[in-house]
């Protein structure tokens, strides 16, 4: 076997390991989907139980939520740009896009926390009625996921800048991209089922 061939098999092995790791992470994402499905179901069941209090149409501001949605959508796109940089093998094209994604994600979380704080200050906290418990449970779980994604992203930015795009770093970056796009999809459903359908 020539050294080229050895290198080739080694490369294939690594590639296979990468694919296995990505598939494992994909399975995790799908189980997370099930978690969200159950809390979506809880929200849908509890949604009419406002205990005489205001419903979603009175409580939520659609333009505000549209801004949140665009922040998250754009962050999904900018993370895609970072993935293009990863494909080109250029950390210098990955890092700036990750910074942009991080800032967009952080703005989303800040807006959400502000919305929650506003609702609680107005006396519509999660303990007011079953509908609001369901709302804070669902939207809060998503927000918690985004926050974890942000911590992970900060760690990955550190790793990319320190180690460059080594195989393990590139693999983790790919998994983070799956996670980030997945959260964007979950948000689309929150936007549709909680906010838009709440306003109809």
């Amino acid at each position: 076997m020539t050294s080229v061939a050895i290198h080739q098999t080694h490369h294939n092995h690594e590639h296979e390991a990468d694919e296995k790791a990505a598939f494992g992470f994909w399975i995790y994402i799908l189980t997370d989907c099930l978690l969200f499905a159950t809390i979506f179901a809880v929200y849908a069941v509890l949604r009419p139980a406002t205990f005489g209090g205001p419903g979603p149409a009175e409580l939520f501001s659609l333009p505000y939520v549209l801004v949140e949605t665009f922040l998250l959508l754009t962050s999904s796109f900018t993370f895609g740009m970072a993935m293009l940089g990863r494909q080109a093998g250029k950390p210098s094209r990955v890092l700036p896009w990750m910074v942009v994604t991080f800032v967009l994600g952080l703005s989303f979380v800040v807006l959400e926390v502000h919305e929650f704080a506003h609702l609680i200050a107005e006396g519509h906290g999660p303990q007011s009625n079953a509908f609001l418990s369901g709302f804070f449970g669902l939207v809060g779980t998503h927000g918690l996921h985004v926050s974890c994604g942000l911590i992970w992203m900060a760690l990955m930015m550190f790793q990319v800048s320190r180690k460059g795009l080594t195989a393990p770093v590139a693999r983790k970056l790919f998994n983070l991209s799956l996670f980030w796009h997945f959260l964007d999809i979950i948000w689309i459903f929150v936007f549709t089922f909680v906010y838009l359908m709440g306003a109809i």
Partner: peptide, 11 residues
């Protein structure tokens, strides 16, 4: 499929 069963089943 599981998601649909969970959500619509619960409702």
């Amino acid at each position: 499929i599981i998601v649909v069963i969970i959500v619509f089943g619960s409702l």
